[in-house]
Design a protein around this nucleic acid. Structure first.
Lengths: 123, 123, 123, 123
DNA sequence: GTGGTCTAGACCACC
DNA sequence: GTGGTCTAGACCACA
């Protein structure tokens, strides 16, 4: 039994940053908070934030200006979406479908729930 | 940012027990491990286990024989399924659908992924 | 005046590993020494070696088997060559050409030296 | 693995001084900074600077006036160029060509890179 | 044993 | 101020 979320903190933070970009809380070409700011705010070690940034930089989602800070790439939103979608299909979906099978929920039934969800949130 | 799973531990354990019942690791009318056993195994305070058992007993999934232990109800499997399904539709599904919307994944696409999942796990 | 090589240690190590692969000291699909072994041998912190390995893994030059170690990729030699060549053309060549200009060495003259070098090392 | 530049510090400084002369930062017959000044500026022991000056004096690149200081020779620029060129052809070139061979870069290709370099820096 | 993660803290270069 | 590098050492999961 694992009570804590088993995913590495730096990956959780990376995903969170992507979500922020997708939600347009940080626009493209905009500077994101510094490593030190985030490390204080999220109460983690600066090195952990750096690792998140490194990961996102490798994905081309953010880039870096020496001595200034990190910025969302010009195509950061698109790339953030690709990054998150990959994680979603590879990790969340299989777990979700597994649960459906355990609970004998047929795929048809899922659509019903989906329509309800859409109706409730369409406003 | 929440690094730890935000759900109460005793509820996590309750769900886990239901899963075990559904997977037939503990048959109906079978005695389940004692509070002490589980508290040692899961490295949790015995009171936490007791709360899980209370919750499941209220749902009619397990019952208690004084001085002997807890047992899976005669209709425990069915009730465990209902219990888990409720959690699944109320908590997991909305979160899942929300993510789909954020990532602009149409419902049609989900079916494709579902079929892939089924094919991979049908053996 | 910088007396020490200004390139980061973990990048120097990454290049050194690539050279080893190109020189076939570590064959493709072969396991390379563990992080701990190299950290002792090279007298650097294990984290520094890990960073070198991370870099090379991102380049697809090496890959990892959990709990076993790092291995040279099937196409590791080719990718190591590409990696080193990029570094060579981007960093070493400009510096080399700059020196040629400072010393007023025309390109023709370089060819003479090159032929001498080849003759001396062709055996 | 050598993390530090393997060349003796006093030789590195000697080369640096030659570069300065070639770049006309110190003109011929001009006095160059005192041993004490340089030792402070470069954070090096005065004896190390003295050894650099000795080396350059032996090459006839600089000369000494008792009680006054060191001066660039009348033909210092030419001799500095010869000194640096010798180092360049004897030490840098072989290493450079060796790398070219390791990376299977033919000499023709080098010319392409050279032209690009010239074009970029011709302004 | 292996690698993976995280913390604490230091020093550096660049702006 | 910013990020970049490196060390020391801890704890974890996996095999």
């Amino acid at each position: 039994m694992n009570f804590a979320n088993n995913q590495a903190i730096y990956l959780q933070i990376a995903e969170e940053i992507c979500s922020y970009i997708l939600l347009k809380k940080w626009a493209q070409e905009e500077r994101i908070p510094s490593i030190r700011e985030l490390s204080v705010q999220l109460e983690v070690n600066p090195n952990t934030i750096l690792r998140s940034f490194d990961t996102l930089q490798n994905e081309g989602i953010i880039y870096n200006k020496r001595g200034i800070g990190y910025f969302v790439s010009a195509d950061g939103m698109e790339k953030a979406k690709i990054y998150l979608k990959q994680k979603f299909t590879d990790e969340d979906m299989p777990q979700f479908f597994k649960r459906m099978n355990l609970l004998s929920i047929p795929f048809n039934e899922l659509e019903t729930y989906y329509k309800k969800f859409i109706n409730k949130n369409k406003n």
